[in-house]
Each structure stands twice: as structure tokens, then as C-alpha cells.
Design a protein around this nucleic acid. Structure first.
Lengths: 355, 355
DNA sequence: CCTGAATATGGTAGCGCTATCAACTATAGA
DNA sequence: TCTATAGTTGATAGCGCTACCATATTCAGG
């Protein structure tokens, strides 16, 4: 009749499982984590006990005992909300699995001192590593500040990673090429391109991919009108207006992200153009916006949630090796993209181009 | 020369602070948490030590020792991504402060069995409480399942809370009235209203608020065309088409959320109507979409992040009292909304209405 | 100046888990 | 058969913090 102690009634612990399986707590722990060096029969007994008792490990205790990182920072600026929510979903899943907390910090400003300031708040919060989704992945002030504070970080969706840094991305070049080939296969020969914000190297990669596919098809770059955009809806409106005002208007527009593609759809409608019969419009990212507008956008799907998960895991791995003594193996991970064909793309109108 | 033990080098603990302040660890703990029953001079000594050593408590240890809830579920369906990201930001901030983890679970389906299934996954994950953002806050299968599993929950943005349940909301009725008055003050006398999805009681509340303001102004409800929408962009297109096809077209459209308002803007543009010169359009929620479209939407701002925070804290408080023995004081919290006037609303065109 | 409550502090014992190392058992080789 | 060697398992001791109770201190009022 020991006193009930502080244990919240009904909590199942490793001890309970150990007793039920006739092994020690340590063995249960081993089975739960990777299970290296545990005899098969033992493992099964433990797993059965876990199943029977409906045991689930207490992550607080786990990270306390293991002395693992518990606070991972996530500095976000103002990407599309659709991107952010997907990103958070992925990051949260990974964080929970790793038993660490996500510390969010907004960084709205574009100015260097604002970015530095936002970053500095991490240093004082004992954050052990930071995840940098775009466009902050390439913000020099942020990275300088982290460097100074000795906080490791992993960047996400940086098109071109510098020397040795942790980065998670997709093959922007390849994806843009694939999309361009899709348009060429539909029969388009005059394709307008809206570039992304030059402050992100993925913009350049996507443009390069577009160019490569055009050249590979033996077409003349001169026939491809290109406008500068900044990944925002507003910039998409301006760029599209310019593209359509050209004497030789394109039969298809490839926008470097969905926001600009959605803007292009709006402009086309306002001009009485039917999408895709009169004009094909495609985007990039497959954010929620792509399926919100009508017609739904043909686009490139980035596995945003998976990228966030990968980034967090990469960071934690880096932190572990760093703690183990030597510097982490600086790594880059490239995940798969997917070409999603929806209703906004189709063959060009009969009388090719120019109207 | 004791061996360094497992402590990650350089971690500051309560012990360190206690030593530095010349008190016991327990006193430090008291100062950090609320600080009841600590002499002022002592508290200051401790705070000084904390400052000097740059101490920040280890949340894993904290929640382990306190035996607090560590896993809070968040069941989301498919609200606008903008809403979800804001919501997650607020919930995460509160979760970190409370030292608990957010367990996300998607529930895409609308069918009862799908919803029940998604909910059930929480029961097996030892989630101690669940947050239900809209539209799930009112999904009967979800609530039934939680009830059955004995898991407490808090609903968010439920327009009308049943008997005794935890709920966090804004005054939808008042907000809709305020928006309607804004339109009336601009001079509009024929206002079209697009209702929200009937599966959420906030839709009814917003409609009631609209009606109340109309009646209070002594206007005839017959002059106010009303269409049913479902909170989606697509439904907004259909509803707007119908409103503008009426023989007596409205000079202003009040959509029950921003997605539908954005759709209304799109339809207006396609018909060559200038917003707001020819047609005023206003929304509700102030999601990112409101500032993405052009012109930016006049709308009602819900403090989404704050609502998420409030919801989590309410839930944790409920959990605490429940653990303390008796049932929680079931509570409802109403936060403030804000009328945001942007460019999409203006006075009606000269020759009133009908064209 | 003393008593008794109220208020402040400290000591101890865990919370649930895992690192560490020692002990043990199987497999292989001499 | 007996030692090496690898592969398994368990006992112990914390991780950093707080609940709980015991003790020390204060400050009325008698």
C-alpha cells in the first residue's frame, strides 16, 4: 500500500512494460528506440507488452534523460500562408517525434537590422538550432547573426547552397525544365516566363531550368518574353499585363510561383481571355491557392511538409554529431518534386500566337 | 574533479542559480513560477542571478516533474491555409510556454466515419486534450468520439456554444452588425449578403447580425438579396453571379468570409465592374487573402492567433482542475474583433443601384 | 517577552526515461 | 574443453525540475 506518489493515475511507464514483459526497463527502452542489440524473441515480448498496456513514451522524460535539444527555432518571414501552414505541419510532426519544441519567431521586415534583431532574440532564448524557410534561407544578416551566436541552422528551399551548409531543397532546375517541356509538348512555341524574386537563388534556378528546356527543344530564346516578378500576387499582375501587352503575346505563361500564376489568371479573365483555351497559365509550388482559383492551376508540387521534417531531422542530426565532439557532416538533401497537371494548361489556340 | 556526468556542457540549472543567489533550488523554482510566498529581497537576488547566468528553465524537466499534460491534440480539417497558419502560430506559442507538445491530426473528410476515425487516433496517442478549430468545432461525430474517450476539448469560433462547454470565439453577431453599419454609413441601401456554411453556427450569427443592423436602420429586408455560400472561393463565385444577375443588383456585397469576398472581386472584375466605384465588396476574417487580392478587402479581423492561445490555455486550465479532483469550470471566452477598412469599400455610385 | 499563527525557506524524494558500465550468455575458434 | 569475442541484458545513477512536508523565520497580539 505504497502511497500513490505524484504519478498521474493511469500512466503506463517503462517499468510497467518491463514487468509485464519480464525484462528490465532498459531493455524496453532499447526496443522502443531503434532496438539495437536485442534478441528477436525479447523484442517481441516487449512489443506485445507495449501493445497490451497501450504504452506510449513520455517525451518530456525522454528528452530530459537523453539530454537532447529541446528548443529549435523557426524564423519565418512572410511567405504565403499556405506555404507556412504546410511547413509548420511538417515541422511540428518531426518536432514531436524528436521531443523538441518549436520556437517561432516572426521576421516581417526586409531591412538588415530588423532581420538581425529578430534573429538575435533566438540567441537569448537558448535555442539550439534554427530552421530557415524561404526567403530567409538566404538572408545574409540572419545568417551572419546566427554564425556570430554559434547557432547552427538549416536552410530550406535554397536553390543553390553555398560551400558546406545544411540545406533541404527540390531540384528547381529540373522541375522548371519539366514544366517547360509540358508546355512544349502541348504545342506552345511562344511561352512567357515570370521570374521570381532575385533575392532567392531558387528564382535563378527555375529560370535556368526554363531556358535549358527551351534550348534543348531547339527554339529561339528571343521568342520567349520574360518579365521580372517578386513572388507576390501584385507583382504577378504587373508582369502579366506587360506580357499580354506585347505585340507578340505568348500563348502560355509560366509563372515562378502560384501566387503570380493566380494573378495571371485574374488578369486574363479581366481581359476576357479564357484559360486555358485562349491562354495557358502554369505555376510552381502547389500551394492552396493553386486549387482555390478557377481554373485550378497546373503546377509543380513541392513536398513542403516533408521538407520541413527533413530539415528538422537534418538539424538534429547535426546537433548530435556536434555534441559528439567533431563538427557535423554538412549535408544537403534533395527531395522529389511532382508535376501536377490541372485545368489551367492546354494546347494553344488554333491560329498560333499573335492576335 | 568529479566526472562531467551527462550534462551538456554549459547548461545553467536551478542549482547554479540557487548557488549564485545564496538560496535553495526550491526558492529559485518558486521565483520562476509565479513566485508566491517569496520575500521581495530574496526574489530580487534570485532574479539578478538568473539574469547574470542567463538561465532559462528546461521545459522537459519542468513538465516531467510537474506531471503536467504534455500532448495536446489539434484536429484540423481544411480551413483556409491562412487561418490555419495563424492558428498554429498562436497555439505553438502557448504550447511552448506551457511546455506541452501539439499533436496535429488532419481530418479531411466530411463523412461522419472519417471524422470519427481521425478523432479516434487521438485516443490511442495518449493525447490529454483536444483543440477543435472551425469547422470541426461543431462536428458531431468528432465530439461524440471525444466524449466517449473521455478526452476534454475546447472548441474555437463556434458561434453559439451549447450548454456548458469550453469555447473561444468573437462576437460574430456584433461584428456583422458593425460591418453592416459601415456599409449603411457609406450610403448603401441595397446590400447583398452571402451566407456562410450552415454547418457552422457562426454563419447564422453573422447573418443575424446583418439582419439586426438592417432592421435597426429601418430598412426593408426585402431589398437585401441574400445568397447561400459555403465559405469556399467557388461558392463565392456562384453566389456573386446570382446576386449580380438580379434585376435589382446590390451596390454592395457582404460576404461571410474573405474567400467568398475575394471570389466576388474576381467576378466583378470579369464583368467589368470597378471595385469599389461600381461595387463595394467586404469580407470577414482578415485572412491573408484579404490583402492578397486587389483591391485589398475591407473586413473583420479575428484575433486568430490569440484565439488559439486562449483556447490552449483554457484547455490546460480545465485539465488542471480536472486533475485536481472536481470537474473543470466550463467556460467561454469572447475576444475582441476589429473592423478593418481598406480599399474595397466606398460609397455607392451616383445613380443609386439598378442598372 | 512569550505564544501561535502566518509566512518563508530548505531538504528530500521522486517524475519517466536513458547513459554507462558491469555482468552475463551465446557463438566461434584453438 | 576452454578461452576469446561478440552479442544481450540488468543495476545504478542521474537528467533538471517541482511536490511535499519539515523547519525556520517573521510579526501580530497578549
Amino acid at each position: 500500500m505504497s502511497k500513490p506518489s505524484r504519478r498521474s493515475r493511469g500512466t503506463v511507464t517503462v517499468q510497467d512494460v518491463a514487468r509485464a514483459a519480464g525484462v528490465s526497463a532498459m531493455t524496453v527502452s532499447r526496443v522502443v528506440n531503434g532496438g539495437s542489440n536485442v534478441r528477436a524473441t525479447t523484442r517481441e515480448a516487449v512489443l506485445a507488452a507495449i501493445e497490451k498496456l497501450n504504452y506510449s513514451p513520455n517525451s518530456a522524460a525522454r528528452s530530459l534523460a537523453a539530454g537532447e535539444a529541446t528548443q529549435i527555432g523557426l524564423l519565418y518571414s512572410n511567405p504565403s500562408a499556405a506555404y507556412l501552414s504546410q511547413f509548420l505541419i511538417g515541422a511540428l510532426a518531426a518536432a514531436r517525434r524528436a521531443g523538441c519544441h518549436l520556437v517561432l519567431e516572426a521576421c516581417e521586415g526586409e531591412r538588415a537590422d530588423e532581420q538581425a534583431e529578430a534573429t538575435r532574440s533566438f540567441a537569448s532564448t537558448s535555442v539550439e538550432g534554427v530552421i530557415l524557410p524561404p526567403p530567409l534561407s538566404e538572408a545574409a544578416p540572419v545568417r551572419a547573426e546566427l554564425e556570430a551566436a554559434g547557432i547552427p541552422w538549416v536552410s530550406v528551399a535554397m536553390g543553390l547552397a553555398p560551400e558546406n551548409s545544411m540545406n533541404v531543397r527540390i531540384d528547381d532546375f529540373g522541375a522548371a525544365s519539366a514544366m517547360t517541356r509540358h508546355l512544349l509538348e502541348l504545342g506552345h512555341r511562344r511561352i512567357g516566363f515570370i521570374r521570381g524574386n532575385p533575392n532567392q537563388s531558387s528564382s535563378a534556378e527555375r529560370y535556368r531550368g526554363f531556358l535549358a528546356a527551351i534550348e534543348q527543344a531547339g527554339l529561339d530564346l528571343k521568342d520567349m518574353p520574360v518579365e521580372q516578378g517578386y513572388f507576390t500576387f501584385r507583382s504577378g499582375i504587373v508582369a502579366t499585363e506587360r506580357l499580354l501587352d506585347r505585340s507578340e503575346a505568348p500563348t502560355a505563361i509560366f509563372a515562378s510561383n502560384d501566387d503570380m500564376a493566380a494573378a495571371a489568371v485574374g488578369v486574363a479573365h479581366r481581359r476576357g481571355l479564357h484559360v486555358p483555351n485562349d491562354l495557358t497559365i502554369v505555376g510552381f509550388d502547389d500551394t492552396q491557392l493553386a486549387t482555390t482559383v478557377w481554373p485550378e492551376l497546373t503546377t509543380i508540387r513541392q513536398p513542403t511538409a516533408a521538407m520541413a521534417e527533413t530539415a528538422l531531422n537534418l538539424l538534429l542530426a547535426g546537433l548530435r554529431t556536434q555534441r559528439g565532439g567533431e563538427m557535423a557532416e554538412l549535408d544537403e538533401q534533395v527531395l522529389d518534386y511532382e508535376l501536377i497537371v490541372r485545368e489551367s494548361s492546354g494546347p494553344p489556340p488554333e491560329r498560333s500566337s499573335a492576335r
